[in-house]
Design a binder for these strands. Sequence first.
DNA 1: CGTCATTGTGCAACTAGTTGCATAACGAAG
DNA 2: CTTCGTTATGCAACTAGTTGCACAATGACG
Lengths: 191, 191
Amino acid sequence: MSLPHAILTALLEKPSSGLELTRRFDRSIGYFWPSTHQQIYRELGKLERAGHIRVLPTAQPARGQRKEYEVLPAGREELSAWVSLAEDPRPVRDPLLLRMRAAAVVGAPGLAGELRRHLVLHREQLAEYLEIERRDFPPERTADEDRLRHLVLRGGIDLETFWTGWLTRAIDDLTGSGPGPGTGSRASDDS
Amino acid sequence: MSLPHAILTALLEKPSSGLELTRRFDRSIGYFWPSTHQQIYRELGKLERAGHIRVLPTAQPARGQRKEYEVLPAGREELSAWVSLAEDPRPVRDPLLLRMRAAAVVGAPGLAGELRRHLVLHREQLAEYLEIERRDFPPERTADEDRLRHLVLRGGIDLETFWTGWLTRAIDDLTGSGPGPGTGSRASDDS
DNA sequence: CGTCATTGTGCAACTAGTTGCATAACGAAG
DNA sequence: CTTCGTTATGCAACTAGTTGCACAATGACG
């Protein structure tokens, strides 16, 4: 149940309308909790009904008319409570790794190409994060209250760095020698 | 739609019953595509109806009676086709990063403790992967057909290495100086 | 004035994964 | 021989996320 809390966080940073929130997600919180406008509108409705947020009285409510939301005290408390919950890391669920594993069994003609494609995408994402870091967190003074936000960004940077590194080595390993395993046949398990 | 393909891969490696498959997932494919027995049984039913797998004739079909499945040619073809599909990396979706971001807004008394807890978990997972590597992929001869499987395992190892590194630095950064930001108040965006 | 693109809100249906539980066969213990 | 734990299969309801689309207001262009 993270999306409502992502929305509360974003609304505390700045009261917004649904679409505005969606756009801010696309270049901020959405980097580690992506969401669509449909989902966001639905969740805004729930949060309002729960008394966690309300429509700013300045805007008139009508279909197709902009509605700006702000967080109510109850919403802030809810978020505070959620922040201090313990929650185990979610298990990895990655189709690319699954594909490689399947390729070990049924063969993989174009797999190296797919790895190269992913490498490009991860490099782009990494560059985007580094650009944000350069812009928002210059080395001089790291404002105390920005430390957590910087750590989160560092997480994104380190994660993309891991992917580019691993993909590079995987491509080398796959194309460096022989044509690959073809249709494997063993029946052992594990790993 | 990855679960059916995960199951096809596992069944090609070795024909199995539902429960056996579940257990093999727990210490193998489930590391990057986790699944429960309920989901696996449901999917086995669909795969059988689709003509991708069949029950081995040796076992008699009855409720509460073991049924062993094997992959049919159509299933192998389906898997082959899926392996060569292009699929973009899924966006990250991580509650811990979200929590840190929320903590920058509403404060975070116990956050460092939670980070330490995660660090332990990731270290344990890393140790488990390294043990598997030591056991299944000794340095001497790397059999050609095992290369892909080893690469997948390397992915898990590198990923856990990234987490332990990042968490260690985050904990240092959070506990090293001042008491943290408390209730932040800024209203800027991005990052 | 009409129509067309843009901004904005939102519903409905679908898909995939999770949680809780029911049920059957079978062997071991009392 | 019955009861109990284990192995095994599976259904049903729920939750979260995705996809496709509908509709209202508004301002620009002809």
